[in-house]
Design a protein around this nucleic acid. Structure first.
Length: 435
DNA sequence: TCTGGGGTCCTAGGACCC
DNA sequence: TCTGGGGTCCTAGGACCC
C-alpha cells in the first residue's frame, strides 16, 4: 500500500460539476418574486413534493413527502404544480452560460451538469478557480437562481465538491487536497456507491472514501468489478469518465408507469390505465422516430409485489394500435381478479430507428399503411390540440371515472409561454378511437 | 424513505456455433 | 459418439443514477 497515493498536481484536468439548488422551486421564485423567502414546493399535480425550496426544507419538508403531510407541517406552504417547460428553459440558459467558458459541457440532467475547463486558463486569462467562480456568479446574476459548484480533477471528485457545501456553495479540490477531502467523505456520498455497495464495503471495515482509495487497485476491482476500478481511479484523481458533450438524441428503452391514488381491483379501470401508459410511451417513441421490437407489461399489487411479462414482436411497430392485442394478452395472463393493484407499467425495449416498413408474411401492406396514416393523423391532432385529445377507446373509461378527475385538470403550461391547451381553450371534447 | 417516475450500465449464465 | 476449447449473442436481474 502506498504511503501517499494521490496526485499532487493542482489540476492536470479541471472539471467542474454544477448543481442547481432546489432547482424547480428556485425557478418558481425567480419568476414570481413575491415567493422569495417563502416556503415553496412543486409537485401539486401528483400530490407529492417534487422539489422544496430551502425555506421549506428548513421546516422539515423534503422530496417525496405527501402534500397532506407537508401542509400539516406548514400551513402557509406555497404549493405549485410542476412546470417543466419553464424549468427546461432555465436549464437551457444555465448550460448556455457554461458554454461561454468551454465547449465541453455535459447536460447531465435538467438541473446539473459538468464542464471541462482543462487548458482554457490562457483563453480566459485566469485560474480555473476564478473561472468557476465567475460562471457561478453569472448564473446568479442572469438567472436569479443559485448553483453549487465543485471543481476538481475528475467528474467524481467535482461532484463530491458541489455536494459539500450547499446552497450556492463553492468547493475546489486541487490534487494536494484530495486525500484530506476524501477523509471527510463518507462512502455513501460517492457517486456510484449505492446502499448495497456501502454495506459491502462496511463489512470490510471501510468508513470513508479515503479508506477505499488507499486500497490496492486489484482489491477494488475484484470486489466490485469494472465500476469499482474506475471509481477507485477517479477518486485518486485520474480522470476516467469523460465529459460527454453530445446531446442525448435517442433511447434504448422507453417506459411509462402510473400509480393510481387509490389502488383498484377493477380490471377495466386497470386496463384503461395500462392503455394510457402504452399511448404515452408510443407518443414519446414516435417523437424520437423510433419503433419497438419488445414490449413488457408490469402490474404492481397493492402490497407492492409485482409481476411482469415481456414479448418480442413479430415485426417492429410504431403504431400504437398494432401493439394492443399483444399487450392485452399479457394483461390477461397477469391480472388476478379480485386483487387490488396500484401501478401499471409498460416498457418498450429494443428500440430502433423507424425506417423502412416491414410486413409480416400474411399481412396486407395496404392495411398496415392505412393504420400508419391514421396514427400519423392522430399524432398531428394531439400535437395541435394537446396530448390525449384523441386517444384509444379504453381511455373512455377514465373520463367517465371520477377517480381520475385529476387527470383531466387543465395542465398548467409554462408561465412564459402561457395558456391552457388549445383543446381546452376551444372547448373541444376528448375523442376516442376504437381499438 | 416503506415505495414516484424514468433511465443506464454491468454481469452471469445459457444457447448456439465451429 | 464422446470430449474439449473457444467465441458470440442474448437474456435476466442487479445496482445505481436523477
Amino acid at each position: 500500500m502506498s504511503e501517499f497515493p494521490f496526485t499532487l498536481q493542482s489540476y492536470p484536468q479541471a472539471i467542474i460539476h454544477f448543481d442547481g439548488d432546489a432547482f424547480f422551486a428556485a425557478v418558481e421564485q425567480s419568476i414570481h418574486p413575491h415567493l422569495k423567502g417563502q416556503p415553496v414546493v412543486t409537485g401539486k399535480e401528483r400530490g407529492i413534493i417534487a422539489c422544496a425550496s430551502y425555506e421549506a426544507k428548513a421546516l422539515g419538508i423534503s422530496r417525496g413527502l405527501s402534500l397532506h403531510e407537508a401542509i400539516r407541517l406548514c400551513p402557509k406552504l406555497k404549493v405549485l404544480p410542476s412546470d417543466y417547460e419553464t424549468y427546461s428553459l432555465y436549464s437551457k440558459r444555465m448550460f448556455d452560460i457554461a458554454r461561454r467558458y468551454t465547449p465541453m459541457v455535459e447536460e447531465y440532467s435538467i438541473d446539473e451538469g459538468f464542464a471541462d475547463l482543462t487548458g482554457l486558463r490562457r483563453v480566459h486569462h485566469t485560474s480555473y478557480e476564478e473561472m468557476a467562480r465567475r460562471f457561478q456568479k453569472d448564473i446568479q446574476s442572469e438567472l436569479d437562481i443559485t448553483v453549487s459548484v465543485g471543481l476538481s480533477l475528475t467528474k467524481s471528485l467535482a461532484k463530491l465538491g458541489s455536494k459539500f457545501r450547499k446552497p450556492a456553495g463553492f468547493t475546489a479540490i486541487p490534487g494536494a487536497d484530495i486525500e484530506n477531502f476524501l477523509k471527510l467523505t463518507p462512502l455513501d456520498k460517492v457517486w456510484g456507491f449505492g446502499p448495497n455497495t456501502v454495506a459491502l464495503l462496511t463489512k470490510y471495515g471501510l468508513k470513508t472514501a479515503c479508506d477505499y482509495a488507499v486500497r490496492p487497485e486489484e482489491w477494488a476491482e475484484k470486489l466490485m468489478g469494472k465500476i469499482g476500478r474506475e471509481l477507485w481511479g477517479e477518486l485518486r484523481g485520474s480522470s476516467l469518465y469523460p465529459v460527454v458533450t453530445e446531446e442525448k438524441s435517442s433511447y434504448c428503452s422507453i417506459s411509462k408507469c402510473k400509480t393510481f391514488t387509490a389502488p383498484s381491483s377493477n380490471p377495466e379501470f386497470i386496463w384503461a390505465k395500462l392503455v394510457r401508459n402504452v399511448e404515452s410511451a408510443f407518443i414519446k417513441m414516435r417523437r424520437y422516430k423510433l419503433r419497438v421490437r419488445k414490449v413488457g407489461v408490469m402490474l404492481r399489487r397493492q402490497d407492492y409485489r409485482q409481476d411482469g411479462l415481456e414479448i418480442r414482436l413479430s415485426r417492429p411497430v410504431a403504431v400504437t394500435r398494432d401493439v394492443i392485442p399483444a399487450v392485452r394478452e399479457m394483461f390477461e395472463q397477469l391480472i388476478e381478479r379480485g386483487t387490488a393493484y396500484r401501478t401499471t407499467m409498460v416498457v418498450l425495449g429494443k428500440l430502433e430507428p423507424d425506417g423502412e416498413q416491414q410486413y409480416e408474411l400474411f399481412e396486407a401492406p395496404a392495411q398496415v399503411e392505412k393504420r400508419r396514416a391514421l396514427s400519423d393523423a392522430v399524432d398531428a391532432v394531439n400535437e395541435r390540440y394537446g396530448k390525449h385529445t384523441l386517444s384509444l377507446a379504453p381511455s373512455l373509461f377514465l373520463s367517465q371515472n371520477r377517480q381520475t378527475a385529476r387527470d383531466d385538470q387543465p395542465q398548467r403550461k409554462s408561465a412564459l409561454l402561457g395558456g391552457e391547451t388549445r383543446r381546452q381553450r376551444l372547448r373541444i371534447p376528448r375523442l376516442f378511437l376504437n381499438v
